[in-house]
Design a protein around this nucleic acid. Structure first.
Length: 262
DNA sequence: TGCCCCCTGCAG
DNA sequence: CTGCAGGGGGCA
């Protein structure tokens, strides 16, 4: 599910909810969903919540860290009610808890002292350390379709299918355009639109087309504002008269306007 | 640089 | 029933 705006939504909420709390225990209901010895987190205090691309990291006392990846269907719900998809429950000493639900069991939580192995290959984060200049440089390094490059976490960290589709739509760029063939003007436009859709995504609390909910179990609203994503067969929002089409690119559903995106 | 795969559930 | 789903690791 979740891309940068969804994880950022959780980071903002969880920072306020769990920093300062001490972990009492971690219950693992699905062994596949947890990596490492969960007892290492017991008795540790949460001193920070950070986001790396689509991953969350809880910094605990004594240098211990909990890294969390929600993959396609993960949820982190504060004081959530256990259900059939609940995989891990973190209980705090004050009685509150954090529920990790994950229908598809692709996501994971892992405990570690060193998370550099998980973060070192990530490219710059669009809303933290990506500049126009850097973005143009990145696009120039590849002749692959620009959408594929946008979603390549080693090139740019945090962009997934929804926001890649919508940024390309707003920028008027066909998803298959080789990244290194974009003009400087087009590249700059794409950079601006990418930031726009990501920031709107955070403002609207993320996209909840299917599974995503925030730390309070509430749905986000991006799905009410999709520009091209999930709109195949519907009128292009630019009123050009064309309908949004859906193709497959790199195995992922790809939505675009055949008139507006060249 | 592309495919297949990890899983479960839901729409067509 | 088949195919598809906000991700990404591993393999040829």
């Amino acid at each position: 599910m979740p891309e940068l705006p969804e994880i950022e939504t959780l980071r903002l909420q969880l920072s306020r909810l769990i920093i300062g709390k001490t972990i009492k225990s971690i219950d693992i209901l699905k062994p596949r969903s947890f990596v490492g010895d969960s007892r290492r987190a017991a008795g540790k205090k949460i001193i920070g919540v950070r986001r790396f691309a689509k991953m969350l990291v809880f910094d605990l006392s004594d240098g211990v860290k909990l890294a969390i990846h929600l993959k396609m269907s993960g949820q982190l719900i504060y004081n959530g009610v256990r259900n059939k998809h609940t995989r891990v429950i973190t209980t705090f000493e004050d009685g509150d808890c954090l529920c990790f639900n994950d229908q598809r069991i692709f996501g994971w939580i892992r405990v570690a002292d060193d998370i550099t192995g998980l973060t070192q290959k990530l490219g710059p984060d669009p809303i933290k350390d990506l500049t126009v200049g850097k973005f143009e440089e990145i696009l120039k390094t590849s002749g692959r379709p620009v959408k594929t490059v946008l979603m390549d976490q080693e090139k740019i960290a945090g962009v997934g299918n929804i926001y890649a589709n919508d940024a390309l739509f707003l920028a008027g760029i066909h998803p298959k355009t080789p990244a290194n063939q974009l003009s400087q003007v087009k590249s700059k436009g794409l950079y601006l639109k990418l930031l726009k859709v990501l920031k709107e995504g955070i403002k609207w609390g993320g996209a909840s087309k299917t599974n995503f909910v925030d730390a309070f179990g509430r749905k986000g609203h991006v799905q009410e504002h999709f520009y091209a994503y999930d709109r195949d067969g519907l009128e292009c929002l630019n009123h050009c008269g064309a309908k949004i089409r859906k193709i497959k690119l790199g195995g992922r559903g790809t939505f675009f306007c055949p008139i507006c995106q060249v």
